[in-house]
Lab assay of single mutants.
Amino acid sequence: PVYLSVKADNSMFIGNDPVTDETMITALNALTEGKKDTTIFFRADKTVDYETLMKVMDTLHQAGYLKIGLVG
C-alpha cells in the first residue's frame, strides 16, 4: 500500500520519505510505476486545515490518482 501523510506542521511524507508539493507526484509515479489506479491511503494530522487537505487531494486528482482512501 502507498501512504501519503500530512503532519501537523504541513510536512508531507510518502511512506517515511519526505516530499514537497513539487515532488509529490514524481515520487508517487516512481513508487507506483505510473499505475494511476493504485489506491493512495491519505492520512493527515487532525490539526491540518481543510484547505491544505483539499489542495493535496486536488493535486492527486489532477495527476490521475482517483483512488484515494482516507485513513485516521
Rank of each mutant, 00 (worst) to 15 (best):
I40D: 00
Y50K: 14
Y65G: 00
I40T: 00
T32M: 06
F42R: 00
T59C: 08
D37Y: 05
L28E: 00
S5T: 15
I14Y: 03
K36Q: 07
E51A: 13
D17C: 10
I25A: 04
R43I: 15
T52L: 13
T52Y: 15
Y50P: 14
D49R: 11
I14V: 13
Q62C: 06
L70Q: 07
H61C: 07
K67G: 04
T20P: 02
D21E: 15
L28M: 05
L70A: 06
S5D: 15
F13M: 10
S5W: 13
V56K: 05
A44H: 09
T38V: 14
I68E: 02
R43G: 07
K7I: 10
M54V: 11
A63I: 03
G64H: 02
F41P: 01
Y3P: 02
A27R: 12
M12A: 02
V2G: 01
E51V: 11
T32N: 03
D45Q: 03
D17P: 01
I14W: 05
V2H: 02
K46W: 11
S5M: 10
D45L: 02
M24E: 00
A63L: 05
D9F: 07
P18M: 12
T38A: 07
V6E: 00
T59Y: 08
D49C: 09
G15P: 01
T20I: 03
V6A: 02
V71C: 10
I25P: 02
R43F: 15
F13E: 04
I40V: 06
V6R: 03
F42L: 15
T47Y: 11
K46R: 11
A8D: 10
K36I: 04
Y3K: 03
D58C: 07
L31G: 03
F42H: 00
T38D: 03
D17T: 14
R43C: 11
A30Y: 10
D9P: 12
V6G: 01
I40K: 00
F13D: 02
Q62K: 11
N16C: 10
M24R: 00
K7D: 09
N16Q: 10
N10L: 14
L4M: 07
G72M: 07
D17G: 05
V48Q: 03
K7W: 12
L70H: 09
V56L: 14
P18T: 07
S11R: 12
S11Q: 12
I25E: 04
M12W: 07
V56C: 05
K36H: 08
I68M: 04
I14R: 00
M24T: 02
D58N: 13
D37G: 08
A63S: 06
T52C: 05
E33K: 12
P1Q: 11
F42A: 03
N29T: 08
K36T: 08
V71D: 08
D58R: 14
D9N: 08
V48H: 03
A44W: 12
D9S: 07
E22A: 11
L31N: 04
M24F: 10
M24L: 15
D9G: 07
L60A: 01
A27G: 04
V48T: 08
G69P: 04
N16D: 13
N10W: 06
F42V: 15
I25K: 02
G69M: 15
V2N: 01
T26L: 11
Y65E: 00
N29G: 05
I14F: 06
A8M: 08
V19F: 03
D21A: 14
L66Q: 11
I68Y: 05
I40M: 02
K7R: 09
L31Y: 12
V56P: 00
K55H: 11
E51C: 11
T52P: 02
F13V: 06
L60K: 00
G72H: 11
E22Y: 07
T39E: 13
P1K: 09
M24Y: 06
A30V: 11
M54T: 11
K67F: 13
M12N: 01
L4E: 01
G34C: 07
D17Q: 13
I14S: 01
L28T: 01
K55N: 08
A44Q: 03
T20L: 03
V6Y: 08
L60M: 03
P1C: 10
H61D: 03
T39N: 09
Q62L: 11
Y50C: 12
F13I: 05
T38K: 05
N16Y: 07
G15F: 07
D21W: 15
A30F: 10
G72Q: 12
P1R: 09
S5I: 15
A27C: 08
M54R: 15
M24W: 06
V71T: 10
L60N: 00
S11F: 07
K46T: 12
A8P: 06
G64A: 02
N10F: 09
V48K: 02
T47K: 10
A8E: 10
L66T: 14
S5F: 15
V6F: 14
L70F: 08
L60F: 03
I40G: 01
V71R: 04
F42K: 00
K67N: 13
V71P: 07
L28P: 00
I25D: 01
F41L: 14
E22D: 12
K67L: 08
M54Q: 14
H61R: 15
A63D: 04
M24D: 01
V6Q: 02
F41T: 05
Y3S: 05
A63P: 01
A27Y: 14
L28F: 02
V2A: 03
Q62H: 09
P18Q: 13
T26I: 11
A27H: 14
Y50L: 14
I25W: 03
T23P: 01
N10S: 11
D45F: 04
K35G: 04
A63N: 12
F13N: 03
L28Y: 00
F42Y: 03
T47E: 15
L60I: 06
E22R: 05
A8Q: 06
N29D: 13
L28H: 00
R43P: 01
D21C: 10
G15A: 05
I68W: 04
L53N: 02
K55W: 13
Y65D: 00
Q62Y: 07
Y50S: 11
T52N: 06
M12G: 00
D9K: 06
L53R: 08
N16K: 10
Y65A: 00
L60Y: 00
L31I: 09
L53F: 10
N10E: 07
L60C: 01
V2R: 02
